[in-house]
Design a protein around this nucleic acid. Structure first.
Lengths: 127, 127
DNA sequence: TAGAAAAAACTACAAATGTAGTAGAAGGCA
DNA sequence: TGCCTTCTACTACATTTGTAGTTTTTTCTA
């Protein structure tokens, strides 16, 4: 399967991808064991999801060690997050306003953070 | 069905809820016809989703006009969005940082908007 | 080299979601 | 009052997703 320009993983797919991004690459077993104990699916569940990610072109078998395949991600976190976020904004109606509003409203963003963002924005504009 | 304290609609459910929030209340037909032409499902599809929303306690039959039921939302946009956003941040790993970063990075937030947010934040803090 | 251990490969399956068809009841108009 | 229209109420069904069991193959290790 070809890897799509953008990839929108499901919840569980994202969890496994996140694990892979963290460890770089690994076997099914290693991926499974790198997951937080509190939500660590069975070995075969992880296997199924990794296979599906492979089907979808989001990971691939990089090599084989012993009898175990070592998987590595083919999509990177940045772009995957970007896809998810843009899609999400789409479901919220296409405007980021409610999102930003909620972040501010719920106190999830501090004033300092806003200032930081502003600075970042200015820098970006400058170049 | 009891309405839950928070409600996390699916994509289509959210579209129909959004339609309802806009028109206030309406029959299946009215809801369907208020949807943007480009993604307007069949009458019975709308009906099915509204019934499911009813099951889930997100809408209810307010009254009957002729032989048609008039539905009204039981959840409001604010809290529904809040639920969706918090859930989404959860899937992104629990931190809003990547989200905010992307918004700024992708130029989705303007400087003016940031200033606006800052003001909003200060006001909120003031009271 | 034979059996145990580990992984791969395959199969299964229920719930949720999107999508819509069909049958039958209710209302309005000629 | 008897159709025609419009709804309602039900049923159907493929796909996606989460979840995991079973069978087969590979590899070590005694």
């Amino acid at each position: 399967m070809k890897s799509p320009p953008t990839f929108k993983p499901t919840r569980l797919e994202l969890e496994l991808l996140s694990a892979l991004w963290k460890i770089g690459s690994g076997s099914i077993r290693e991926i499974q064991e790198s997951l937080p104990e509190d939500r660590r699916p069975e070995y075969t569940t992880v296997q199924t999801i990794i296979y599906r990610l492979e089907e979808k072109g989001a990971v691939r078998r990089a090599k084989k060690i012993g009898n175990a395949h070592i998987f590595e991600p083919l999509v990177n976190r940045q772009s995957t997050f970007a896809t998810l976020i843009d899609d999400f904004i789409g479901t919220l109606g296409g405007s980021h306003e409610p999102l930003v509003a909620h972040l501010v409203e719920s106190g999830k963003i501090s004033s300092a953070e806003l200032k930081q963002m502003e600075k970042l924005l200015k820098e970006r504009r400058a170049k």
